[in-house]
Simulated assay, not measured.
Amino acid sequence: MAVDNPPLLRVEALEKRFETGGGLFSQSRSVRAVDGVSFAIGAGETLGLVGESGCGKTTVGRLVLRLLEPTAGTVEFDGTDLRTLDAERMRAMRRDLQIIFQDPLGALNPRMSVGDLIMEPLVIHRVGDAVAQQKRLGELLELVGLASYHAGRFAHEFSGGQRQRICIARALALNPRFIVCDEAASALDVSIQAQILNLLQDLKQELGLTYLFISHDLGVIRHISDRVMVMYLGKVVETGSKKAIFDTPAHPYTIALLRSAPSRNRGKTRYSAIKGDLPSPSNPPAGCRFHTRCPIARDICKTTPPPLASVAEGEHQAACHFPGAIAA
């Protein structure tokens, strides 16, 4: 879904470096977890961010919310550069910016009741009096499919799907406009996963939410996203509409990801593994970072990093010297 209105979120040349080592017997090394990532998300849109574990997608989500401080680049939300905000102004901005984590049990304080957990953002930001907060609590529980009597229970008394509903209610407490969903359904059983994904879609329509949806699961990304961005070793390698990415992928890595998803062949589940090992992010290959695993890599791929360039009409882009050279 192309967005004609100005983007709600704009990210330019985002970088994050982590320093590792530096002990008595080792030298420090710089790991570029995120390296020059740029994208935009329109109001009411869901951008799916996909890639292998360790590609930097979760780091991108946390950088966008300033849960981690970027090494370089800009993050603009509704025209405001978040990196220029002091602690007090950033705290006020967080009412519009929320996150749903992968592990709902780990995200919930086991010593607090569900009611206190959901109302905590209201208390911290001093939204309403006690009566108004209790009323809001009831609204939020109903909104995510829970009952009012659940408010007095604790996180360990709930199933995984119910815990994620609690996390969603907590994220919605301050009426945010933008939510990062960081593997929000990956820790759940398949049937429960579908319920949570449908809930997130319903909430998006009802409340006018905007999502950055992070997942390694291509099926989930296809189900919930309007546009898709594919990352590999800290860089964006392909981006475009959901239809473009799944019907006419151009980058060999995207094609390899799609082929590695389970498929049925004569009644048996088949997988097509990506050949080669994932290089170390502390010492990425020169040129195209995927060339060590790419079946069509040539000399230029080993020396010259390919730019993210258009491969078709619209917003479909790929960082490849030979986009579309492999049939999907």
Rank of each mutant, 00 (worst) to 15 (best):
G128W: 13
G128D: 10
G128M: 11
D129T: 08
A130W: 11
A130H: 13
A130R: 15
V131N: 13
V131F: 12
V131S: 15
V131E: 15
Q133T: 08
Q133M: 11
Q133D: 08
Q134S: 13
Q134R: 15
Q134N: 14
K135D: 14
K135S: 14
R136E: 09
R136P: 03
R136D: 07
L137S: 06
L137E: 08
L137P: 02
G138I: 06
G138A: 09
G138L: 03
G138P: 07
E139F: 13
E139R: 10
E139G: 12
L140H: 06
L140T: 05
L140W: 09
L140A: 01
L141N: 01
E142D: 14
E142H: 13
L143M: 14
V144L: 02
G145M: 04
G145F: 06
G145T: 05
G145Q: 02
G145I: 10
L146D: 08
L146S: 05
A147P: 00
S148K: 15
S148M: 10
A151E: 01
A151V: 00
G152P: 07
G152Y: 08
G152S: 15
G152K: 14
G152C: 01
R153I: 05
R153Q: 13
R153G: 11
R153F: 12
R153L: 12
R153S: 12
F154M: 01
F154G: 00
F154Q: 05
A155F: 00
A155G: 11
E157C: 08
E157F: 09
E157V: 05
E157A: 14
F158A: 06
F158L: 11
S159T: 11
S159K: 09
G160D: 07
G161A: 09
G161L: 04
G161T: 06
G161K: 01
R163D: 01
R163W: 07
Q164M: 07
Q164C: 06
Q164V: 05
Q164W: 05
Q164L: 07
Q164D: 07
R165T: 02
I166Q: 02
I166A: 04
C167P: 05
C167R: 01
I168A: 09
I168D: 04
A169P: 04
A169H: 00
A169E: 00
A169Q: 01
R170Q: 05
R170S: 03
R170C: 05
A171T: 05
A171E: 09
A171K: 06
L172T: 02
L172H: 04
A173Y: 06
N175A: 14
N175L: 03
N175G: 08
N175S: 14
N175W: 04
N175F: 09
P176Q: 06
R177A: 11
R177M: 02
R177H: 10
R177S: 12
R177P: 00
F178P: 02
I179W: 02
I179D: 06
I179T: 02
I179P: 00
V180W: 03
V180H: 01
C181T: 05
D182E: 09
D182I: 09
E183L: 10
E183P: 12
E183N: 11
E183C: 08
E183T: 09
A184M: 11
A184S: 15
A184L: 09
A184Q: 10
A185T: 15
A185L: 15
S186Y: 12
S186D: 10
L188S: 04
L188H: 06
